[in-house]
Design a protein around this nucleic acid. Sequence first.
DNA 1: AAGTGGACCTGCTAGC
DNA 2: TGCTAGCAGGTCCACT
Length: 271
Amino acid sequence: MPELPEVEVTRLSFASRIEGAQVTGVRLGKPLRWPLGCPPEALVDRRVGAVTRRGKYLWLPLGAGGLLMHLGMSGSLAFGDTMAAPGPHDHFDLVTGRGTLRLTDPRRFGAVVWSPSPDAGLVATLLGRLGVEPFDAAFDGAHLHAALRRRKVAVKQALLGGAIVVGAGNIYACEALFEAGIDPRTRSDRISRPRAERLAQAVRSTLGRAVELGGSTLRDFRDAHGTAGAFQIQAKVYGRAGEPCRRCDGTVRRIVQGGRATFFCPACQRR
DNA sequence: AAGTGGACCTGCTAGC
DNA sequence: TGCTAGCAGGTCCACT
């Protein structure tokens, strides 16, 4: 469900409220992508530190170690002191003195993994393959250009992969390419330096704007307050196959790349 | 090494 | 109205 903006908005909505709280209990539902990695009781009495984000992952420090959380395709987090009885899709509750953090995830592609350190084991492996943060100074046209030059896959797939830059999922990758005027089928190594510059800028502005607007193009997105996403961000191409382009008089097209839907305007976006 | 396709799991929608 | 096929925001892993 969530791409970087949704994950970041979620983080901002509960991080300051949970920080400093002490864990009093843990409840597990059905299995997620990976096992928790420790007995649930081992989390009790630990104190929650400052929640951070890396790509689409959240890191929740608990004493010396912490929990790595991912929302997968359909996950969301809620934090509150009056939690309803867990439903069939509520697979993780972290009960603290200040409220309960609950992961709801129907498809269970999400994850909650304990690690004694973000630099150890599975967590280190997962975080280790991630590309740069889009808002990091290290992510600019030069960086993107150099990384794309080493790849032959279509630029859309290179963006989605997350090994170059993290955070742009299927929706925002489509939107950023539209904003940059680049055909998603263009081979990565054929993207010129100026176009890489424009694309880097488009990735940053697309994701940044989505974070600022607190939300999302996702219909069912809610932050951890349960605040319904206002659906403030209008997708220019995503999900609009057959509809008129918002910039020219062309028609938005849907193709499949690497098994995922891609939406673009063939008139506005060039190879 | 890089690219490709299948896998994970459930819910919703469109179409018959 | 009810069933089925197809699709969905992610990303790991095995294989070529």
